[in-house]
Design a protein around this nucleic acid. Structure first.
Lengths: 251, 251
DNA sequence: CGATGGGTTTCATTAGGTGAAACCACGTTT
DNA sequence: AAACGTGGTTTCACCTAATGAAACCCATCG
């Protein structure tokens, strides 16, 4: 389903970008008809939009299968995403330090719309570890980082999320608000197998000048390593780091 | 200058992608008027195209400066570029082995139009090393990898490059052809401060089923470490790896 | 053979994309 | 103070570029 067009935008461009975003998940290769079905446009329209993306190198066709894949132009942009991001260049060394100190995978999440994106990850060196794909988009209503981002964001965002069709029906809004209040009081959030079986996480907010969350700093790993003692230690360290980074970002 | 439109493409989309590609170099932040000047379109057109890119998260505005930067949607695509690339997943372990064996930075380049792009890099661990930015676009007429890619590509590509306005006037076409013939005979290319002062490289081709270059495997580092003895050793190892990878890619 | 499915090309239609101009805000200069 | 320059935002008339539909091509399968 092609998305609603916003005012002052170019519909054709939005459609082409929707095509690109078909490749944002785990789909590595798609055919013309697949894509046309996904975004709900006529084959001939999609064909032209794909040709446009291909002409600028954002899409390429695989020689053998002849299906469409992402092109190298995406790579050309990627190093610049980090260069242009003040946040991750400042936070990266501290994330590495935390990973080395605590031995688990450290991730950094930011808000994007009513979701979160993992924009940076430093993986544990242990044989069994949390694998963390940069660029991954995740819901806000589940997991430690989601709660942290919400707890330190505007009421409008929370309302918007709670009225969105993606809000799980079985999730009590009152209980969720209560959980966010607890996050605000303790300064961190814990998630034990909440988002994914076998995985646990602890997160704390990196805040901006207005006190709102700029990012969530998170430690995650296999749930068996997140004993109550470990969680307590992780929480202390992650919160301390987040507070230090909050101060650094104010200058 | 907005590029020429190809047949069967959507002009608006190509223009928007040209805007995105303004951020492919070292420019991290651009204003509306900057961009309009760069691609030669009216401000109001650029404004709308930017709004479209922003609506899908490919562009964002920096809170303080209010200038445009790349957005997180680029990150969402990036892990998929590698997943969808058979080549780099196969070559990556061998690149790491070479880096550990030889101690220098290993890079992988592919053809894109009449240029090359570094699609993968495993950096040396030495304090003084070659820094290798993935996604970097470079000319074919200079450097070891450029020569390797050309030596094992079609005559048409070489003609196209030599007639392009980017071909340096002081570079003899006959001598260049001769150099490519030498690459074909030896199976590798050497570049000593050819592309950049203080830097040197040795490269060999990874070929496809038709014998043409699929990629160039390259070792690069500070020129003082590329003694004749070292170059000889590097050439042997890189060429051996490239041949092994050529065989692997045939199955 | 016909049916199906993936992709490519052609064509008539119309509304969406465009450039220009006006507008706004802000900082600098006279 | 007014004028000017610069960066960004909005409105509007115009027209051609984007679109969907249909036809076409090719390969595979029953």
């Amino acid at each position: 389903m092609a998305g609603e067009q916003e005012k002052g935008t170019v519909r054709a461009v939005e459609r082409a970008l929707d095509i690109l975003l078909c490749f944002a998940g785990s789909e590595t290769e798609l055919g013309l008809s697949d894509i046309a079905k996904r975004i709900g446009l006529h084959k001939s329209t999609v064909h032209r939009l794909l040709a446009s993306l291909e002409s600028k190198g954002f899409i390429r066709r695989h020689p053998q299968t002849e299906k469409y894949r992402l092109g190298w132009s995406v790579l050309e942009l990627v190093s610049n995403v980090y260069q242009s991001d003040d946040l991750s260049s400042i936070v990266s060394p501290e994330m590495t330090r935390l990973r080395d100190l605590l031995g688990e995978t450290i991730s950094l999440y930011v808000l994007s719309g009513i979701e979160r994106i993992r924009i940076q990850a430093i993986e544990s060196k242990q044989p069994v570890r949390r694998v963390a794909n940069v660029g991954r988009r995740l819901p806000l209503y589940v997991g430690a980082s989601g709660k942290v981002l919400l707890a330190y964001s505007s009421e409008e965002l929370l309302e918007e999320l709670m009225t969105d069709s993606s809000w799980p029906p079985e999730l009590s809004r009152d209980e969720f608000r209560h959980a966010l209040q607890q996050v605000r009081e303790s300064g961190y959030a814990v998630s034990i197998e909440e988002r994914e079986p076998g995985a646990a996480a602890v997160a704390a907010p990196i805040r901006g000048r207005n006190g709102e969350a700029v990012a969530a700093l998170s430690i995650s790993g296999p749930v068996d390593r997140f004993t109550p003692e470990a969680v307590e230690r992780f929480a202390q360290e992650v919160r301390k780091s987040a507070e230090m980074l909050t101060k650094m970002l104010s200058h």
